[in-house]
Design a protein around this nucleic acid. Sequence first.
DNA 1: GGCGTGACTATGG
DNA 2: ACCATAGCCACGC
Length: 114
Amino acid sequence: MNRFERDLFKNSILRIVKMIPSGRATSYGAIAKAVGYPNMSRMVGHILGEDDIHKEIIPAHRVVNSQGRLSGKDAFGKNSEMQRLLESEGITIIDDRIKNWSKIFWNPIVEIIL
DNA sequence: GGCGTGACTATGG
DNA sequence: ACCATAGCCACGC
């Protein structure tokens, strides 16, 4: 993956994350698949953690792992900022896991209409 | 180029 | 449902 591909990958990911509706969430792997790189789930998390990501316009807190776990919460500073943001959107979290994950899950491939 | 690492995932016990 | 394991692959050292 050269730098050009990497930039496309990054831009595509950020575009999808911006589409996640409030009150819903998706997974690293689902986003990776949606942009055509099914094995790049780890990179999705890496990119969302980069410093130049503006968390005001990129709702990175709506991206969790495939089990609905808040595996990235440590990147949101201390005191469970990620959990707080999700709860403020009406999502219930128990032991770092989103309740009713199958209902909350937003699948980009299915729900994005071009 | 080797090696360890990680906001990951699918699978099997 | 929980844990371990093996794939995965860009990145940094």
